[in-house]
Design a protein around this nucleic acid. Sequence first.
DNA 1: ATGAAAGCGCTAACAT
DNA 2: ATGTTAGCGCTTTCAT
Lengths: 346, 346
Amino acid sequence: MSKMNGRTKATPITMRDVAHLAGVSQSTVSRVLSKSLSSVPISKDTADKVLSAVEQLGYYPNLTASSLRKQRTFMVAVLIADISNSFYHSITRGIQDVADQYGYDVLIANSDHLYENEKHFCRAMMRRPVDGIILVPYHLTVEEIDEVIQRTGATVTMLGSHINHPLIDTLAGDDDQATYDAVRWLIENKQHTDIAYIRVPLSYPPGLRRFNAYLAAMRDCGLTIRDEWIQEGDFSIEGGQRTMRALLSSPHPPQAVVACNDLMALGALNVALDMKWRVPEDVAIVGFDDIPLASLVRPSLTTITQLSTDIGTQLAEMLFERINGVVSGPSRHWTIPLHLIERQST
Amino acid sequence: MSKMNGRTKATPITMRDVAHLAGVSQSTVSRVLSKSLSSVPISKDTADKVLSAVEQLGYYPNLTASSLRKQRTFMVAVLIADISNSFYHSITRGIQDVADQYGYDVLIANSDHLYENEKHFCRAMMRRPVDGIILVPYHLTVEEIDEVIQRTGATVTMLGSHINHPLIDTLAGDDDQATYDAVRWLIENKQHTDIAYIRVPLSYPPGLRRFNAYLAAMRDCGLTIRDEWIQEGDFSIEGGQRTMRALLSSPHPPQAVVACNDLMALGALNVALDMKWRVPEDVAIVGFDDIPLASLVRPSLTTITQLSTDIGTQLAEMLFERINGVVSGPSRHWTIPLHLIERQST
DNA sequence: ATGAAAGCGCTAACAT
DNA sequence: ATGTTAGCGCTTTCAT
């Protein structure tokens, strides 16, 4: 290693240095290195000289400069709702893998489900434009997302179905149908009548949809819902624990509990066991997302799968198809099939 | 929203536009906006004109251009070993929070514990220099990290104690001592004599250190270790499951199992329960990391805590102290106290 | 107090 | 086939 002594200024090696060493002009170096198809031919001889100079100096092109000039950053940004939820985090991994393949770096942001953070993300995108954005928006409006697109020219792909924009490809699960089916399955196959639901605040469009699906299933089966069976969590394990405690201590505890996501379902499961309720004998539990933990805990959690890794790669593939011009034309809206995975908690 | 019709080029608003609207020169706009302490005074009047032009146009400065000129990117990069391990992912969150506070964006990369990926990360840093780097390196050598520092001028902070470089602040837990203590505690307080260890490949310095601590504790207590009690996993839940299956099916299954990380311990726990072994009565299990799951599963997992969120914020704070010049001088090496958390699995 | 001009490192259009 | 030149959008000297 050079010397490692003292905190000194960096000594970046630029194209100029390479050009100088190779005895050619700086633009020739650029041409050799970018070897773009459209470019003019270059003599084998100079190409070799350049390449060996690059080798010798250990030159790395500066992407910041290249970005500025090309108006293309080779970065994509991802906005997820909760970095501590492994559901999102499988998505992230899927995206990273695909981005890597295309030579892109990934900027990750986390909204914690907060509108303010989502808006902050949009502002960040205006300042540091990226080529592509993958969003899991909860509160953002079409207008806000549209502004980012108009101003930065970024290609946007999102998870969810509540935004409709002519330039945004979307991928969404059929949440409501899956929730509806799960509740009916609890009623018809498991003979439950007293079914509680742990929802999230109704300002979250997907949360609202899932909750409505639960209501519809109960209504369609002619079942009545006690007020105390409807609980409101906040996506987290703690939310699930708190609401489950309320549920199990109420005068009429439910026979089954459906939660809007796995994290809350796991919190609920955990509280049930600690309160010595047998699961599923005394109370059955159903989640949503199929995060890795769902199959790991005992009893393992019955849940609705979204195949989160696939979602990530899928979203990224859709994005890069646009970025690389493989696909053009009107926005695509894909739906992914969801299905109940029956495990030990029901 | 403007029109949303058709996939058109972006219409970025630059400083020139602002200058034009405000009727001043572009450099004046820059001065007003950067309001750097060192800068010359500016008349209240023009400042107002500029600010209102900014407002009116909804101007956002372009960070790519600014980065190029200032040779400062306002980005930090993080290299973690496993994005699906919640231990790292609490670290990530801690870093994100701090970075956010300082107005920095965060680039996250994932090595999957692979040397090749770690080197790939270094190359990426050469091409897209960032102001700061936080590393959890497993295989990277001092030389390789030093090159990045020399070439990019980035400030580096890392988790771990096996790299010694005059410019790199490090934060490390006292893994070996904690492991040693945990094993002795199993022996002296829990009266176990047959203790197995699930290690990771010995090419991982921290893994090696922890393993040696286990050996030392056993030896110091005069206990012998059967060959089959030493198993090798790969950091993952599956690794824990596979090795635990081997352990429990062996002719002399251990009374206690210590794993090098929580993920493997959880896999082991899970297999034990599925094979109808009672935990901790038939076999006790100890992990390392204290990831959120450790306290969630039943029986909950006895483990060694590293306070991962604190680690993230701590690392980031150390980094920004350097970046912002709050601290200078020789590199600091901090140790964080680790301690055993006794839960139900022992 | 402000404008003009140079330049960060690169790409691409324009020369030759 | 290669060199020269003009920017990308910004910051920062140097003038005035």
